[in-house]
Write a protein that binds this DNA or RNA. Sequence first.
DNA 1: GCATGCAATCGTTAATCGACGATAGGCAAA
DNA 2: TTTGCCTATCGTCGATTAACGATTGCATGC
Lengths: 95, 95
Amino acid sequence: MQALEGAEADEHLAKLAKAIGHPARVYILRMLSRKEARVCSQIADELPLAQSTVSEHLRILKDAGLVRSSQDGPRVGYCINFDGLRRLKALVAII
Amino acid sequence: MQALEGAEADEHLAKLAKAIGHPARVYILRMLSRKEARVCSQIADELPLAQSTVSEHLRILKDAGLVRSSQDGPRVGYCINFDGLRRLKALVAII
DNA sequence: GCATGCAATCGTTAATCGACGATAGGCAAA
DNA sequence: TTTGCCTATCGTCGATTAACGATTGCATGC
C-alpha cells in the first residue's frame, strides 16, 4: 500500500484528479465502470466529439492509471483499472 | 441532495476534480483540513510559491466550492467548505 | 497481396493554466 | 491621518490543454 499523505501522495492525487477534471473523461469512466462500450469507436459514438479527441481522452485516463487497454481480441478494448480507481477513492476519502 | 449521476453530476465532479488537479492545491486542502495555517500569508510561507500565486490557487478552490473564506476577524481566514468536500467524496465514491 | 475498419498519431489553432512581479485595496494600530 | 501589513487583482509570459481533420499504422478478411 502506498502512502496516503505527504508530497508524493499529493502529487499522485493531483494527477488522478486532473485526469478526471473534464466532463467527457468522467463520462467515459462511468461508462466503463458499467462495463459498457469498451471499444473506442463506441465511446466516440456516445459523445459529441471526434474519434481522435476521444482517443486522446482515453490516453490521458490510461496515463493516469485509471483505465487499461486490453488487446485480447482483434480490436482494442478499454476497461477500468480498478487499482488506480481504488487509489483515487482512498486518497480523496482522507482529505 | 443533488444527483450523483447524469451529465450535471459529471460536470460537477469534473469541476471539483479539476480544482484539486494541482499538487499545491491538494497540499493547501490538506493543510486546511488539519485546521492549520488559515491565513493566506501562512500558506504561502509553507510553499515555494509567490503570494499572488497562492492567492490564485485559493480562488480556484473557492470557486469550486471546496474552500470558504471567513471574515470573522481583522484578517481573512480560509477554511474547508465541508459541503463541497463531502460532495466530492460522494461523487468519487460511486464511480 | 490488397482492401477494410478501427485506433493512434501528427499538425494546427484557440483557449486555458501556472507563475511571477507590480499594483491596488482594506483594515488596524500608531 | 498616516503607516504598515496582508490580500486581491492586473498584466504578461511561456507552457499546456482541448479540439479537429488528416494521415499513418495495424490487424483481419477477401
